[in-house]
Design a protein around this nucleic acid. Structure first.
Lengths: 350, 350
DNA sequence: TTGAAAGCGCTAACAT
DNA sequence: ATGTTAGCGCTTTCAA
């Protein structure tokens, strides 16, 4: 491996502009105490030579690394990739996060970390030590892992916790799961549904319970019973089939079901079809996530769209600009929206 | 922004183990000339202190950066993300690339570059200067952009060109587009089809033409005419509709169509449905890419699976290990496979 | 407003 | 087999 050096360094620029290294550094970093004429001269040399500072060198001398690290759950992410279920969480994360980073001259780098590991701290510590990011974005289920949050707090690394409302260090951010579930439920109630089932997600994720809360609130507000109408899955298709069967075995069965992600909703759709139930005629369905596949089913699914890109964009923004300012103490919420498609209609006879 | 330093450095380890920096460095890098007992002692201190070398510092002192840079087309990638068509190219790339990188203690960084920009060189140069990657992976349409390949060659940065067969610097890698198209065509011929239409992709991608070649070879080998049976789209749904209509207006129309990606195949499916044609009864369809959505259509699409993850995995492997060894001069090919689903059957009356 | 000097954490090159 | 020295490219002191 050939020893590789920077093609054009700050020294070349300094020599070309006939100034000191320090002056060039000041121009690069937009620091005060540089006369406009000087600044112009240096900038001209920079442009002429096509100089770009080395992140490594910048980092070495104690400044920022211009790196934002996004952490996802290893097991889950790899499983999603392997099975190709069409989950585009990572893509939406990149869309929001990378582009916002780029706007600020930052880079987003993305790592998989195993939460169910006793060595999370060590694993994360290694990544942090190697990369020295200026900020970290945690996603569920890491967002509420005390091992991780405490570690980052101790190291004084700014971080955002996506899908977390817990007070504590770091910026808590949510997509208003409770509100989305409430609005989805209200939508069904407005269509005339009285018995609305809910398939919750895995307890490992706090947002699973927030969604139940939203559904329950809407049911309560409308004076509807929710006895036995909530059942729990684990976000897998398989668990969705079990949950849907359980709900449809009820007497009377629900006329509508909200499921906490697309896989489980697709499972409910399959189950309904197998039982000879027409969607939406006999059963209305609302999904969570709005991944691409929900537009390719028959009927297309009405779904809660999660503002993943917007949330990551906001997270990056806060991490980068909040160096000085105070961290918001209330959770930062970016609300989702309900996308109406073909899987919802008034119930039979309404 | 607080001045952040490495928590535990090579110095701490050296002090703890009571050896010189250099010895620690040797242990880290698995270099020779360290007695096993010494190595053990140092390793114990490393583990005890939880030391992890800083990439920035390693890079600074002239060694590797342990970074592999993957480049995708900015416009296309962002459009895919925004429209949420279900393309999981990026995910599969990450699956293959990141995991293989991790195996070797490397990291994959992923950037968007605008090919249609006169300043590609500058844009890429900036990224390279900032990151100093040990290797670069190019994807279409960058893989054959002479501005880019020449730049990397000049800078002596090892790189792989995915979807390229052109001789020249860098490692050419393909997914055997020609063979896949040939096999897909042969499959249809074996089913009894004689008139098989082909919807090609944009000319900007060399692989579009390789796929045409494969189709044509199979048609020729079976003694079938391909006059007028090949039309070109640009990978968009819209262009697929136009192309499908053009083919189905033929007299006699084809009994089967192969389209060069999933979007165009879905367009062909829509078009067939609109014309009252049953798939696969009246028209068989084979798709390229095998993204998640093809399993959610009715019928599910028979598709050519592109070994994206495997190809990136291989690319990373070659880039990391080929520091010394010679770069393969033949294109490295990883063949795709045909996944049979419900959109293919013998033609009516066969 | 500008410049000079010191050092960040690590490795290559050169001792020993 | 181990240690010492001199940077890598940049920013942070501190001085002028």
């Amino acid at each position: 491996m050939a020893r590789r050096r920077q093609a054009v360094t700050i020294k070349h620029v300094a020599a070309d502009a006939e100034v000191s290294l320090q002056t060039v550094s000041r121009v690069i970093n937009n620091e005060p105490n540089v006369r406009p004429s000087m600044k112009e001269r240096v900038q001209a040399s920079i442009d002429k030579l096509g100089y770009v500072p080395s992140i490594a060198a910048q980092r070495m001398s104690g400044s920022r690394s211009y790196l934002i690290l996004a952490i996802n759950d290893r097991e889950r992410t790899i499983a999603d990739w392997r099975t190709r279920q069409g989950t585009d969480w990572v893509d939406q994360m990149l869309l929001g996060g990378m582009l916002k980073c780029a706007e600020h001259g930052y880079r987003m780098i993305f790592e998989l970390v195993d939460t169910h590991n006793d060595h999370v701290e060590r694993e994360l510590g290694a990544t942090i030590a190697a990369l020295q990011p200026d900020g970290v974005i945690l996603t569920p289920p890491h967002s509420d892992n005390p091992l991780i949050t405490a570690f980052l707090a101790r190291r004084k690394i700014p971080f955002a916790r996506i899908g977390s409302m817990t007070p504590g260090p770091g910026i808590a951010m949510t997509m208003d799961d409770e509100g989305s579930a409430r609005r989805a439920t209200e939508h069904l109630i407005a269509l005339g549904h009285r018995r609305i089932g809910f398939i919750a997600g895995s307890e490992e994720y706090d947002l699973s319970n927030w969604r139940i809360d939203g559904w329950r609130e809407a049911m309560d507000a409308a004076g509807l019973s929710h006895d036995g109408l909530c059942t729990r899955g684990d976000f897998s298709h398989e668990s969705g089939v079990i949950a849907a069967n359980k709900l449809l075995d009820l007497d009377p069965p629900p006329t509508a079901i909200i499921a906490s992600n697309d896989q489980m909703t697709l499972a409910a759709l399959d189950t309904a079809n197998q039982r000879g139930l027409k969607v939406p005629g006999d059963l209305s369905l609302i999904s969570f996530d709005n991944t691409p596949v929900v537009r390719f089913t028959d009927p297309k699914l009405t779904a809660v769209d999660q503002p993943i890109a917007a949330t990551f964009s906001k997270a990056v923004e806060l991490l980068i600009t909040n160096g000085d300012a105070a961290v918001p103490h209330q959770p930062v919420v970016t609300a989702g929206s309900l996308v109406e498609r073909g899987s919802t209609s008034p119930p039979r006879g309404a």
